[in-house]
């Protein structure tokens, strides 16, 4: 797969996504940038809904991490790298993972904040999945490839089957790198969530007290967890490199 092809496809995909968002908002008659900022007493409700949705994202997040790991193992251990399915899937994952998270943030912002009154669970879930899965799959793939070939050969030559090799050797050896990748993905998701809440809060006068701009406590929590998980991630990566 050529690098230039990848770059062109990514650019095309990003352009399409932005065009889609713009067209969608135009077709609804509300320009994206200055959509109606009239808020009533339901604003507080919808903030609650937003927060509730964030909590509901946790199982989605865990589920998508689990699936990402499964997909990565399937791609690396079971599927032959020469098969066309591998080619297509790996290409799409690379493209999705290389899109800046800001674009996902934009997408989320649009659907979370500007489009939905109560917030549509489906779009939120989709954003989280899109944000987390490609990076997790890619980092898990890297972690699996990082396991020395000699370990595999030794186990295979002793008669171990694929499951045995994966469970006994590849997974334990790749574990800390996999967790590091997950932490990076989560911190990305958390940071974007914080961004959305800030923007949401900002444009809802109903939630502001007086003239001061209050930063919601949830944002602090989100940002500090994002920071924490980045720290954990870099620590784990260092540890994985040492052993």
């Amino acid at each position: 797969m050529k690098r230039s092809v990848l770059i062109y496809q990514s650019i095309a995909l990003i352009t399409l996504a932005v065009a889609f968002i713009l067209l969608w908002s135009f077709s609804k008659g509300t320009p994206f940038v200055e959509s109606g900022l009239t808020f009533d007493e339901t604003a507080a409700d919808s903030y609650a809904v937003l927060q509730e949705n964030l909590y509901r994202m946790v199982p989605i997040l865990l589920g998508s991490i689990f699936f990402s790991i499964a997909i990565a193992f399937y791609l690396e251990e079971w599927l032959a790298q020469t098969s066309w399915i591998y080619g297509i899937v790996a290409q799409q994952i690379t493209i999705l993972a290389s899109i800046p998270s800001l674009l996902y943030g934009l997408l989320a912002l649009y659907f979370f904040v500007l489009q939905s009154e109560k917030g549509s669970f489906f779009t939120h879930a989709l954003t989280v999945v899109l944000l987390v899965m490609p990076i997790t799959i890619q980092s898990t793939q890297m972690a699996i490839r990082g396991v020395d070939i000699s370990v595999r050969e030794a186990a295979f030559a002793l008669g171990a089957n694929r499951w045995r090799v994966v469970i006994d050797h590849v997974f334990p050896n790749a574990f800390s790198t996999i967790v590091a990748g997950i932490c990076t993905a989560i911190s990305r998701a958390l940071a974007i969530s914080a961004l959305i809440i800030v923007v949401y809060f900002w444009r809802e006068p109903a939630l502001q007290s007086g003239d001061t701009f209050n930063v919601p406590s949830s944002v602090i929590v989100l940002l500090s967890s994002a920071l924490l998980s980045s720290v954990i991630s870099s620590f784990l990566e260092k540890k994985a490199n040492l052993t």
């Binding site: 000699s150 370990v151 030794a154 186990a155 030559a157 050797h169």
Partner: peptide, 8 residues
């Protein structure tokens, strides 16, 4: 094998 490859 060529390189000693005990399992870790």
């Amino acid at each position: 094998f060529q390189r000693p490859n005990p399992l870790p």
